[in-house]
Write a protein that binds this DNA or RNA. Structure first.
Lengths: 132, 132
DNA sequence: ATTAAATACGACTAATATTATCGTATATAA
DNA sequence: TTATATACGATAATATTAGTCGTATTTAAT
């Protein structure tokens, strides 16, 4: 319960690794995969995902790789989570209201309050705080 | 990602329902299950779990049921989550360190900081705030 | 031109976790 | 004695997450 996914985990590992380098320098998927013992294919998809989202920039061809393409202080963990995993809610009904019990449910509103607190927590936390 | 389980959801629904009644009055599993359209067997286990933990009190036999047995202002959502679902961590390594990468992982400490924030959030929130 | 090493990406499979059900035992009021 | 409730371990079904496969594309180096 309340766990983050490997995808997010690998993304953060990769970002932190890239931030140890000069900003122009490139890092390949293989380098991170072997360095941290992470499955290369899954990491590759994660990096491609981040590249599509503009968080990192890809350079193709041999000697290619990725580099950070954003100021990570400007992106919140909430936005980061949502870019990688979609809407951030402790219950699906926070976004998606096709639950049959939507009308009779007695905890929808209170749960949404908790959810707002959690979203607020991650809104106030930048990716930089985690990867620096 | 970062979802609560049905077990927790049903537990909160049940507690909130019981709090609408006089404190001595009993509520059966069936009553809650039919009222909120929730699977009765799973709800039953959840209520039994809460009874073992002393959150609610069970009365057996026909016309039996459950009633709230604790001041819900005194129990935090963090403790509530951990009673029902075990240790509350966004990554397993927060509690359980048999991860092979434990030594080389570059985000363990930062993730633990996030986790502390989340645990802190739920420590400061009482069950009463959700179920009242 | 050809090769080699890298990213790109959809489809598929495997593993794990969650959710739900089954069967049986026990308690107790009527 | 019966009916209705809780107690609980075992199992089945489902959903989510994690990981792999195959193929295409890009591009630096030879």
């Amino acid at each position: 319960m309340l766990k983050i996914t490997r995808k997010v985990e690998y993304a953060l590992i990769a970002l932190r690794h890239m931030q140890l380098k000069q900003s122009e320098e490139l890092t390949s998927t293989k380098e991170i995969a072997t360095r941290y013992g992470v499955p290369q294919q899954l990491l590759a998809k994660t990096l491609q995902h981040m590249a599509r989202d503009g968080i990192i920039e890809a350079v193709q061809g041999p000697a290619g790789g990725y580099r950070v393409a954003t100021n990570l202080e400007q992106i919140s963990m909430k936005d980061f989570f949502e870019k990688l995993e979609g809407p951030l809610g402790m219950m699906d009904c926070y976004f998606d209201s096709d639950c049959i019990q939507f009308g009779s449910c007695n905890i929808r509103v209170p749960i949404q309050r908790i959810n707002d607190n959690m979203r607020n927590l991650f809104s106030q936390m930048s990716v930089q705080e985690v990867t620096q």
